[in-house]
Amino acid sequence: MTPAEYPDWLASERAACVGDVVRAGVLSPEDAVRKADRDFTELVPEGLATPDNTFLVFEAAGEQIGTGRLRHDHLPGVTCGYSLHLHEQHRGNGYGRAAMAAGEQATLAAGDSALMSTVWGGNEVAMNLYTSAGFRVLEERRSIDLPRIPGIPRG
């Protein structure tokens, strides 16, 4: 990723993060925006120069088809794939698998021996991609919205 590509990537990632959190039913849109702002300020404080991060742009036939970000040594010896996004019109053509292979190469080049990723609930396409690529589920969380009981404060 180049410095010229970074601002668009960051704006797109923030919007995707908000969408994922809202779609999963975790937060309201307003709270999801605040969370995304906090998260990106913390996770990539130095932009492209943030240590232990790899920012990727995936191209095919000279056209950008997607992006990704990896955080190396997230846990000892483990790279975490924080994002992998392919433009919708390029999905289903094998590019997701190719992007994951690039992530595996970047993981090994950084000295890590494992690659993990988080997929928000409701993103069946990503879940299927990771499963088909041999990733296994390590942790799964589920939630339910409970009715508010009058007279009992939240907090």
Rank of each mutant, 00 (worst) to 15 (best):
S83L: 08
L70S: 05
Q64F: 01
V44T: 08
L70G: 03
L86Q: 08
F55T: 03
E88S: 13
S83I: 01
V78C: 10
G81C: 14
L75P: 00
T54W: 01
T67N: 10
L86D: 04
T67F: 06
R69W: 02
G47C: 12
N53D: 08
D73E: 14
L48W: 02
R69P: 00
I65G: 03
P76D: 13
H72M: 11
F55L: 09
R69L: 09
G47H: 06
H87A: 12
P51F: 01
P51C: 06
L43W: 12
D73A: 14
H87M: 12
N53S: 12
G77E: 13
E59P: 00
E63H: 11
Q64N: 04
L48I: 02
P76M: 07
H74K: 07
Q64K: 08
L75R: 14
H87S: 14
L75G: 06
T79C: 08
R69T: 00
P51D: 09
I65T: 10
P51M: 07
A61M: 13
Y82W: 10
A61N: 14
T54R: 06
P51Y: 01
Q89N: 08
E46M: 07
A61T: 09
G66A: 03
V78I: 11
A49D: 14
A61L: 12
T79V: 04
R69G: 00
H72G: 04
F55R: 05
Q89A: 15
H85W: 04
I65A: 10
T54F: 03
G66Y: 00
L48M: 04
D73R: 09
T67C: 10
H87D: 15
R71F: 07
A49R: 13
E88P: 01
L84K: 01
C80E: 14
A60F: 02
L84I: 09
Q89E: 14
L56Y: 06
Y82H: 14
I65N: 03
C80T: 06
P45G: 10
E63D: 11
D52L: 11
E42T: 11
L84C: 07
A61I: 06
L43S: 13
F58T: 05
E42P: 01
L86I: 11
S83G: 12
F58L: 10
A49Q: 10
L43N: 11
Q89W: 03
R69H: 04
H87N: 11
D52A: 15
L56N: 06
C80A: 13
E88K: 05
S83K: 01
P51T: 08
Q89S: 13
E88I: 03
N53P: 00
T54M: 02
V44Q: 03
H72S: 07
L43C: 05
V44S: 03
